[in-house]
Design a protein around this nucleic acid. Structure first.
Lengths: 251, 251
DNA sequence: ACAAAAGTGTTGCTTTTACACCCATGC
DNA sequence: GCATGGGTGTAAAAGCAACACTTTTGT
C-alpha cells in the first residue's frame, strides 16, 4: 500500500466589473450590446520551488485527519482571505504520474464561486493572488496540470448554471434579477433577453425569494430584491443551448 | 507534507433481466406495465480484514506511477473479470478522517456502466462478486463509506442519462431502440411511452447510428439495429422531469 | 426631455405529450 | 387469429423566442 501526497486545488471564480468580451462562437452575426461583467479566476504567483514564480491555482497539502472540503476551505482562507460566503463543491481528482515533481501526488480539485465583491490578499506560500479574466488566462504558463483543472472548472460552472441555481452564488446576499442576469451573461459570454430571463427566473418556483425594494442600482428604476431560494435544481433548465442570444442591439 | 493511502472504488452498474419495481414516487396513481429490466450494482464480499465478510464496492490501492483511471480499469479486471467494453468515468473523491481504520485514506470513486450481458467472477482479495438489484442493496451492511459512494454513483447515472448518450453504455454494441428504452426504464424506475421514446432518440442527430436488421428479439417483429453514435451530449435532454410516464396500461 | 433598467402582454413557432393506428412476425 | 413489439401520424397543450409597450427612476 504505497503512499501519496494529497493536495487540494481551488478553481475560484467570480464576476468582475467591466465590459466582458463576447464568445465568438455564440454571437457570430448578430448585433449585441456590451456585457456588464466578466468571469474571472483567482490565480496565485507561486513563491516556492516547484514552478516558483509561475501562476497556479491556490491550494495546498491536506492534513491527516482533515476532511477534503475542510482543507479546501482552509486553503481558501489562508491564501485568499475569502470568507465563508462562497459556494464550494468538489470538481474532480487528478493523479497523473509525474504531475508533481515531488513525488506521487493526487490532487482533489474544488470549484469555488465567490460573490462579485471582494479584494484579495495573498498569504503563506503564495506571493500574490489576483483575479484574471478567463479570456486573459496564460494557459501555457500555469504550474502543474492546473491549466487542465482550471479549464474543467470553468466548463463545470458554465454547465451547472444551466440547470441549477448556482448563478446566485456569484451575487451578494440580496440582488436584483438584473444583477443575476449579468452573472449569466458574464459566465456564458453572450447577452440574454432581459425580459424573457426575468420571466423565467421569477416564475421558477423556489428559485428566488423576494425580500424588498432597492433604489436605483445603475441608473434605472428601483427593482425587486431577491435572496436565493431553496431550490437547487432547475426544471426546465435555462437554455444556453440554441440561439437564446439577443438583447437590444447596441445602438 | 503528510502521506495518505490512495484507493480507487468502483460503482459498477448494469441492467439485469427480470421485472423491475416501479419507483413509488413516480408512478403513484397511474396504471403501469411491468418493466423489462432492473438496475443492479456490483458488490464484492470482502475477504480480508477491515470489514472482512461484509459487502463492499470493488476497488483497491492505486500503484505509484499509475494513472487513477488505469487503476480503476485494473481493479475492474482483477476483481470482476469485466473487459474493456465498459464506460468508465470519475465520480468523486472521499477522504473523511477515519473512513478507513488502516490510516488516512483518500478514495477516488469511479462509475462504470457494463452492458447487459456478463457473468462475473471473483478474484484476488474479493471472495465473490455479485450483482445486486439497487432496491435490494443492504445499505446498512456496506463496508467503509461505500453506501454513500454507491448512492452518489446511482444518482449520477440517473441524472446523466437525461442529457447524454450514456444509456447506450448499458447496451450491447448493437441494439434496438426497444432495448435502449428498457435501459432508461430500468434506471429511472418507471415506464416511458415507446412511441415517443422512439421518435425522440431516432431524431436526435448523431445519437444513434443505424447498422442493420435483426430478427425477432422478444416475440416482436424484426427491428432496426443501432450502434451508439458520436454525440455525447444531448440537447434537448430526455425529460425524466415532469410526468413523462405512461405506456400502455397493464391489463 | 432623455436614457436606462424593470417589468408585463402578446404572437407565432417549436417541442412535448398522449394516443390512434398500421405493420411484421411468432405462436 | 391473436399477442407482441416496431414504427408513423396527429391534434391538443405547453414552452419559448422575439419584440412592443408601460413604468419609474437619475441626469
Amino acid at each position: 500500500m504505497p503512499d501519496f501526497h494529497v493536495t487540494v486545488d481551488l478553481v475560484v471564480l467570480t464576476i468582475r466589473d467591466g465590459d466582458g468580451p463576447h464568445r465568438a462562437d455564440r454571437v457570430a452575426s448578430r448585433l449585441a450590446r456590451p456585457l456588464a461583467g466578466r468571469l474571472a479566476a483567482l490565480l496565485v504567483r507561486r513563491g516556492i520551488d516547484p514552478y516558483a514564480g509561475q501562476l497556479a491555482l491556490p491550494g495546498g497539502y491536506v492534513l491527516p485527519h482533515e476532511e477534503l472540503a475542510d482543507a479546501a476551505y482552509r486553503e481558501l482562507r489562508e491564501e485568499t482571505g475569502l470568507g465563508g460566503a462562497v459556494h464550494l463543491e468538489q470538481l474532480a481528482s487528478y493523479g497523473a504520474p509525474g504531475r508533481d515533481p515531488r513525488g506521487p501526488t493526487v490532487t482533489v480539485a474544488f470549484l469555488a464561486l465567490a460573490p462579485m465583491l471582494g479584494s484579495v490578499v495573498g498569504g503563506s506560500d503564495a506571493a500574490a493572488a489576483e483575479w484574471t479574466p478567463v479570456d486573459e488566462i496564460p494557459w501555457q504558463g500555469l504550474a502543474f496540470d492546473h491549466a487542465q483543472i482550471l479549464c474543467d472548472g470553468i466548463e463545470r460552472a458554465r454547465a451547472k448554471l444551466e440547470y441549477s441555481s448556482l448563478g446566485a452564488a456569484f451575487c451578494p446576499p440580496e440582488f436584483t434579477i438584473g444583477q443575476l442576469r449579468a452573472v449569466y451573461e458574464a459566465v456564458w459570454g453572450y447577452p440574454l433577453d432581459p425580459r424573457n430571463f426575468h420571466r423565467k427566473v421569477s416564475s421558477a418556483q423556489g428559485f428566488l425569494e423576494p425580500v424588498g425594494r432597492t433604489s436605483t442600482v445603475d441608473g434605472g428604476r428601483p427593482a425587486q430584491l431577491f435572496r436565493r431560494g431553496q431550490v437547487q435544481a432547475l426544471h426546465p433548465p435555462l437554455t444556453r443551448g440554441s440561439d437564446t442570444l439577443s438583447g437590444s442591439p447596441a445602438g
